[in-house]
Amino acid sequence: MAPRPNQSLQTRALLRALLDQPLAWRHGYELSKATKLQSGTLYPLLIRLSDQGFLESKWVEPTQPGKPPRHVYRLTAAGKALARSFDSATEKLTVATGKWARRPG
């Protein structure tokens, strides 16, 4: 069976980080800090999510003089739905695990 796309822990971590501030535009370095992902993992994920239409991006002028414009990202409506679906799945799993743990011996 072919693996389902966007199921990796790294992708979920990135989607969760983006969903924490759904309206804010976030740049790569900030996302790297938030998710603890290295650039070598982060950028292929950003590229793939952007290709799949889960992420929108734009260039913004730098706040510091002499620095280049920065590329920033946020989730699209489809991206938010995907991130929320993962969150609800995680929640269901947590509830189920809790019930199992509380089962009388």
Binding site: H27, G28, Y29, S32, Q38, S39, G40, T41, L42, Y43, S57, K67, P68, P69, R70, H71
Partner: peptide, 23 residues
């Protein structure tokens, strides 16, 4: 270009080097 722009924002040190390797 996006990776390079972030690279320019990272202060000098091991983190900058790690970022470049990752890129």
């Amino acid at each position: 270009a996006a990776m390079r722009a972030e690279f320019a924002m990272i202060p000098d040190g091991p983190e900058k080097f790690a970022w470049a390797c990752g890129c």
